[in-house]
Structure formats: C-alpha cells, structure tokens
Amino acid sequence: AEYPLLVRALANIVLCHVPGEGVWFTTMEQGHFLVEGTGSELARAFVDQLLPVATARLVIDNDFRPDLEPDLWDGDEITAEIRQAGQRLDKLGLLPNPFPIEDVLSERDLRHVKRLYGIGGLSYGNLSQRKDETRFWMSASGVDKSKLDQPGRDILLVSDYDAENGRIVLSVPPGVEPRRVSVDAIEHWMIYQENPDAGAILHVHAWVEGIDSTQLVFPCGSEQLASAVADLVRKDADPARAIVGLRNHGITAVGESLTEILDRIEPKVLRQVPMSG
C-alpha cells in the first residue's frame, strides 16, 4: 500500500509511524522494514537509519561519448553472453515484473517522473561483463533484461568514471539514441577496479543464505552503497567469486563470467529477499 504512495509523491522513501510499534520504511526498491522503539529511543534509531539515505551522493548521470570502435557497434561475444544471461534469468524467474507504474500514475505524471529522474521505465536487476582492463559492458536502465537486443542502446560500454562530476562515461556508436546505463554502474566500476580477476558481475533481487550483507539501506546508484558492496567483496575470502548481500534488496555476485555465476548460484538462490529492520 505504501509503494504507490511513494511513486505518487515522487519520493525515494515513505515513512509510516505506528504508535507503540515503530516506524516502517518503504524504499524505491520495494524494500520495507521496521525500526522499532518508542520515544527518544525510536527517534535516535530513526535518525540513524534515515540520515545515511538522505545524505547519500547519487552517481546516476551519464556522459555519452560517440567514440565506440566501429567493430563494436554491433556488439561482440561479450554482449552476446550478456543477452543470453538475461534470457536465462527470465527462465529462472529472477526477473520480477516491473512495478506497474502506469496503473498508479496518470500519463502526465508518468512523463514528469521520467523527465525528473531521467528514466525510460522501471526494471530490476542488472548484469555486466568485463571487456578489457578498464572497460565493461553493462545492461541499460529501465529495459527488459530478457530482451537485451541492441548493443549501444540496451547494452552499454562503460569506459570511465568522472569522479569529480559524478558521471559514468559511456562509449556509444554514432546515430544511436542510447539509454542510460544501470544505476548500479558505479558499484560495478568499483568492484572491477579493485579486482582485476573479476570477469563479470550479476545483481538480482533474490537471496543466498549465509552471505554477508550491507548494514544500511543506501539508495541504489549512490557512492555509499557502491562502497559498502565493494568493501564486502574486498573482505571475501575469494573476491573474484564473492556473493554479497544488499540488505532488504538483493545480491551482487562476482565471477569469471555471467555463465559461470549463474551456474554457481542457480542451485542455491532464493527468490524471496528477507526483510529486516
């Protein structure tokens, strides 16, 4: 019931105070959890949860540069594997249907949301695979991950990160109207930069038992969430094959390739993400 309110309010979090129980948080990622307590105890716990979210720095702007090599305009073997991995995720039931935002907002409000947030739609999960030492291909934002058909539009080459301006740099072919890359590109960038042996990264809204997870619910696309996830990967016994949790949200898995990651997680992945306060 709270998620439609969040969308209508153009907010990234909705808070519901239940006297004698605490405050329920609902996030854009459809995560929800209860901060329990009363009086000053609840106030302190509430601020501890809200402040990191309110002060997070988002890295969701893109710098599109039409400098993609001509021999990559139609993609390569990596984009083909990303496309196949997206189709496999769909068959495994790991691509939940996007929230039916058209049922909540009027056509006018929907145009406003898309313009305000620079999105083409809502979708969940993302996947990437390393191209070379510094670059990686990654799924676009707001696309059906089972239909990643056009490189340069549905799958984008991340070539750099402009830290000063908080922008992900994308190499795109000329004459193609690209979509934005997934908001989690900054997270993937950090992991690839720190782990030369990491060949691919998969993020899905599912869970694996027994994994370490982030402790605070930072917004997707924020430097803080990216740093928290990269830190967990760094601390893993085998960072190049790590599976870490994003609290109340999902998992990020690192591996040799997307095929290798899916082969490894398929037997143990849980489609329901546990929620905790």
Results as ranks from 00 to 15, higher is better:
55 T>R: 09
39 G>N: 09
41 E>M: 04
50 L>F: 14
49 Q>A: 14
50 L>D: 08
50 L>R: 08
31 G>Q: 07
36 E>C: 08
47 V>R: 15
46 F>E: 13
58 L>A: 13
41 E>W: 01
32 H>M: 11
33 F>Q: 02
41 E>Q: 14
46 F>M: 14
66 P>K: 02
48 D>W: 05
59 V>Q: 03
25 F>D: 03
66 P>D: 00
55 T>A: 04
56 A>Q: 04
58 L>V: 07
62 N>A: 13
64 F>E: 09
57 R>W: 02
45 A>S: 15
67 D>H: 04
59 V>Y: 03
55 T>N: 02
26 T>C: 09
56 A>G: 05
31 G>N: 06
57 R>Q: 09
32 H>S: 15
63 D>L: 13
38 T>E: 15
39 G>W: 10
65 R>W: 01
35 V>E: 14
47 V>C: 14
65 R>V: 11
63 D>F: 02
43 A>R: 14
57 R>D: 06
42 L>C: 13
63 D>S: 10
65 R>I: 07
43 A>G: 01
47 V>L: 15
31 G>P: 05
43 A>P: 00
53 V>E: 04
40 S>G: 01
62 N>S: 11
31 G>A: 12
62 N>E: 08
41 E>V: 14
49 Q>S: 13
47 V>K: 13
65 R>C: 05
53 V>K: 08
49 Q>E: 15
40 S>N: 07
30 Q>P: 01
38 T>S: 07
64 F>I: 12
59 V>G: 02
29 E>G: 05
51 L>I: 14
51 L>D: 13
31 G>K: 08
54 A>D: 06
36 E>Q: 15
27 T>W: 07
26 T>L: 12
35 V>G: 08
67 D>S: 07
55 T>I: 10
39 G>I: 08
37 G>V: 07
51 L>A: 14
43 A>V: 11
39 G>T: 10
52 P>H: 04
37 G>N: 10
59 V>E: 02
45 A>G: 14
58 L>G: 08
55 T>D: 02
46 F>K: 07
65 R>H: 05
66 P>V: 00
51 L>F: 09
34 L>K: 03
46 F>H: 11
